[in-house]
Design a binder for these strands. Structure first.
Lengths: 135, 135
DNA sequence: GTCCGTGCAAAAGCTTTGCAGCCTT
DNA sequence: AAGGCTGCAAAGCTTTTGCACGGAC
């Protein structure tokens, strides 16, 4: 997300390791609160502050990305590959989709604007299959 | 944004009219707070609650769209035409860009997924020209 | 020994909501 | 007259921050 790389001395911490692991093994683009409740049993004294602080650090490290749309609260993912998002307007779930990155759009956008573009996102809003079945 | 259309009996209100007018005559994708400070002099007793309530109603009416990325707070726009957004990572400004809507991406996404897609968004993140000049 | 990370608690920031009175219809 | 809209204030929710203690290096 952010291009600046802090050159800090990060130490190891069990909590941070687990947050990243959990993020890596889920594809549900969890919220901070969900991560908190997942790890609370493992670290009984865990606090939300630790979750947020580590999510921030993991972003600085470039290991986690923040997703800011589709909800009133942030979601996070550890899938760093290029991909776009499908967002269900009914259940608010977020799904990854791999599309061939359309370079021509990027080029055209840079051409038409005064921006130097670093990256782009695409979100598709619709209804997912389980919500369609349910209705 | 939302597909459901409430069939409520909306009355006219000077505050709501002005909020929409101000949104229509600016291209800065303002926050609720900015709208509040803009209109405070015009309506000395204006309250933030009124801004938020009316922005919600204007969205129900389909006259305003909410933009949820690029900041920690929501932004709004009354530009209902198809367009994408350029977001400056330095000053957080949002600029509209008109690109030929790439239908093929939409089709491919629908093909590759189990979603029935209603609409999509694209955000380009980069550095705007005034920030580049400044640095 | 340093100083980073944690838990705890308080605070911050944006947004929503309850309520009584006013204004549109 | 009915009930949507407003201002005011309080509450709500997510996220951030200060501080003292414990742990990584």
């Amino acid at each position: 997300m952010d291009t600046k790389q802090k050159t800090e001395n990060y130490r190891q911490s069990a909590q941070r390791d687990r947050i990243l692991e959990v993020l890596k093994t889920t594809n549900s683009h969890p919220t901070a609160d969900w991560l908190y409740s997942q790890l609370k049993s493992e670290f009984p004294k865990l606090s939300p502050g630790t979750i947020y602080r580590n999510l921030g650090i993991l972003q600085e490290m470039g290991k986690v990305k923040k997703i800011q749309y589709g909800s009133t609260f942030d979601r996070f993912e550890a899938n760093l590959s290029d991909h776009y998002h499908l967002i269900c307007e009914s259940c608010n779930s977020i799904t990854d989709i791999n599309l061939p990155a359309c370079k021509d759009i990027l080029n055209k956008a840079e051409e038409l604007s005064d921006f130097s573009i670093n990256y782009h996102q695409i979100e598709f809003y619709g209804i997912c299959i389980s919500c369609r079945r349910a209705s």
